[in-house]
Nucleic acid binder design. Structure first.
Length: 389
DNA sequence: CTCCCTATCT
DNA sequence: AAGATAGGGA
């Protein structure tokens, strides 16, 4: 079996064929890593700046097998670099940093890092880092073995005969008899090693995307403009267009759910209107706008807000009902004069209150806020119940 | 020809 | 489900 052959070759012969690119602002660390690489027979290139590394990778995409980068670089965002290299060039990237907080590690892994090293580094990390390259080749071969090619020949058979299944640059390690370019394989782009890399929309990347879409008002958010604003190396218009389509579908799903909820609330308000001695009145505010322009909260006529729901000047707000796209969850939080100035059509809700809501219900997206206040025309002193909502 | 949008594919 | 690809049409 092919895999067992490869296993037997690990690690000595393997590491000598691996070309490492190291990026760190600390020249002393670079030297130390370089020495360790010599010791374990890796070939290594060092960079003090992310931009230098980026240029190296761009001018010749398949000249490195593994990248090692410090998470906090002064000249450029290491995470953007990480996403670009792992997604577009498809080279495994190890991130290193003195910061070993869990959240930081998760961020790196989420953005595509194959490993995270906490400084100070241990030499055995360098010694064993070939495993990340090995894993990539392994997985690649596994995938190929499962599919048939255009000749109906199993990949495994092709491997056993003559055609390359792995990076040509490492073929000597695994199979010395192979020549380049498998049949009609794409010669369009040498890429790096593997084929077209799928873009992984990490939470960071998606957040960036959403922000840009929000900034570009309304449906002026078109793929090309989004792409330009995101300024992510390697990301293409097609990538953005595809993601935008999914994102719109997502919004639409939330919209229909929300609509159902809004209808329910409209109903509730209607019943309040019909009941003269109601304890509470309600008014609804669209809270989606402050997510983008957090200066003030512009009330909207939602849902078909009747004029007689504008509260009297001496009304006292008791609760804000926060609803979200999930059908079942609804939360409430106290609101007071510090959070809300004025009522009716000119109400402004303090953005910090929205932030407080976020903190209190981290998993709930604030879509709409419903203010409830005592109706001064009633004598009841009961309060703070969700009251039919 | 470029770009956007939608449907369809993987 | 998430991302890629295809094709119609502006």
């Amino acid at each position: 079996m092919a895999l067992s052959i490869k296993k037997e070759l690990f690690p000595q012969q393997f590491s000598s064929n691996i070309r490492l690119l190291v990026i760190d602002h600390d020249i002393n660390l670079l030297n130390a890593i370089q020495n360790a690489c010599y010791k374990f027979h890796y070939s290594v290139k060092t960079c003090l700046k992310v931009s230098d590394a980026l240029n190296l990778l761009k001018e010749k995409k398949d000249s490195f097998d593994l990248v090692l980068i410090e998470a906090k670089m002064p000249d450029m965002d290491s995470y953007g670099f990480l996403r670009y290299v792992t997604q577009q060039i498809n080279i495994p990237v190890i991130m290193m940093c003195a910061d070993n907080r869990r959240s930081v590690v998760i961020k790196a892994i989420d953005d595509g890092a194959c490993d995270y090293w906490t400084k100070p580094l241990c030499e055995t990390l360098i010694q064993n880092m070939w495993q990340h390259v090995a894993r990539k080749l392994w997985n690649k071969n596994k995938n190929l073995e499962l599919s048939e090619d255009e000749f109906g020949m199993k990949r495994q058979e092709r491997y056993d005969s003559k055609l390359p299944l792995i990076d040509p640059k490492l073929e000597g390690v695994i199979n010395t008899s192979v020549k380049q370019e498998s049949v009609e394989n794409n010669n369009d782009e040498p890429e790096s090693s593997t084929k077209k890399a799928r873009v992984k929309w990490s939470s960071e990347l998606h957040k960036k995307f959403v922000n840009v879409v929000m900034e570009l008002n309304v449906d002026k958010a078109v793929p090309k403009k989004i792409l330009a604003r995101m300024n992510e190396p390697g990301l293409t218009r097609e990538h953005v267009a595809s993601h935008l389509q999914k994102y719109k579908q997502f919004l639409k799903r939330g919209e229909t759910k929300k609509q159902k909820k809004q209808n329910r609330i409209a109903e509730a308000i209607d019943t309040k209107i019909s009941n003269e001695s109601s304890e509470f009145d309600f008014q609804a505010y669209n809270a989606s706008i402050p997510r983008v322009v957090p200066n003030n909260l512009t009330p909207t006529s939602f849902p078909q807000q009747p004029n007689n729901l504008i509260p009297p000047v001496n009304a006292v707000p008791v609760n804000a009902y926060q609803t979200d796209s999930e059908e079942e969850t609804s939360s409430s939080a106290s609101i007071n004069q510090q959070n809300c100035s004025g009522f009716g059509t000119n109400s402004i809700i303090n953005p910090s209150f929205l932030n407080a809501l976020d903190a209190r219900y981290p998993n709930v997206q604030v879509q709409n806020i419903f203010l409830a206040w005592h109706n001064p025309s009633t004598n009841s002193n009961d309060s703070t119940s969700s009251n039919g909502l």
